[in-house]
Design a protein around this nucleic acid. Structure first.
Lengths: 158, 158
DNA sequence: ATAAACCTTCCAGTCAACTGGATGGTCAAG
DNA sequence: CTTGACCATCCAGTTGACTGGAAGGTTTAT
């Protein structure tokens, strides 16, 4: 059995790279308190361990689901080992749970809307000559661009 | 039977008010092509009807679920009566459906994470003396403020 | 020992989605 | 016929979440 599982010390580039993000973003997350300030090497390089990887993974998951970085930070205070969570943060998690449930319902409903739209799209004659150009009268820019459509996430609105 | 269902003509303030948003926002949505340019009164006031109310309601629902305004605009081209939807937009709806399904799964998973967190919060001694102040060393500002926590929505990430 | 590929800080820019303010016209009530 | 609540446009500011660039130090491979 080889003791070769990726252990402890990695630098910011590796941490970021493993989760598919920019080192700048990791520093930014540290600056807003989402990630703790890690130990540094003699030269001042940040040193991350597996715990940081996990914490960041959680952040990314929550972010994908649309929580604001501020909310994620609040929720993460629960994870800080050794500190008693205040009622305030516990309540936050409760409320987030309720929001998640509401979201699950709304999402199911919206799925129906989309299905209706998709059905309509199939029933009418699909054409490759696109009418989408029409809506460009408002915002002229780049219509040759591929749609992003990557992933959706949950987000707070003001 | 009274013929008193709210009919046709309303101005921007009423439209916005009924859906709980700012008239400015409605104008902004028009400016980016989310809403069609409505007819105007002689004085230049925008006149909205029930169809506009419905369209805007759809926008809000999709927005709550986190689609970007640009994506919503694309999806809405499907609704424009009389025009054949191009494959491009039909494909968009298909992809959105897939995203919604993925989202439903991720949301369920995250709910489990939150439940774990909530359980931990209950097990450890809850205290009213809050440690949340600790994290304010990063971003000093306003800690007396009530948390917003309003609603969550689905959002695209770059 | 030098170049490439890292890392550091700091500051400024970008993008989406609003939001507000200035300035002025419209309309119904008193 | 004036007052207050609307409406219009235009332009500028804000917020959250990055992202890029400059200027410089470090590490590693050749």
């Amino acid at each position: 059995m080889r003791e070769e599982k990726h252990r402890a010390a990695m630098r910011i580039g590796e941490l970021a790279g493993r989760l598919g993000l920019n080192a700048k973003t990791v520093r930014y997350y540290e600056s807003i308190g989402l990630l703790p300030m890690p130990p540094r090497t003699a030269a001042g390089y940040r040193q991350y361990g597996d715990a940081d990887l996990e914490r960041l993974r959680f952040v990314l998951k929550a972010r994908t689901l649309g929580l604001s970085l501020e909310e994620i930070r609040d929720i993460l205070t629960l994870r800080r080992e050794g500190v008693a969570p205040c009622r305030h943060v516990a309540a936050l998690v409760e409320q987030k749970l309720a929001a998640v449930d509401a979201q699950l319902r709304a999402l199911a409903e919206f799925k129906q809307d989309l299905l209706t739209l998709a059905r309509e799209a199939k029933n009418s004659v699909p054409s490759d000559t696109c009418v989408c150009g029409l809506i460009e009268r408002h915002r002229p820019g780049r219509q040759g661009e591929a749609l992003p459509l990557v992933s959706a996430g949950l987000r707070r609105r003001r």
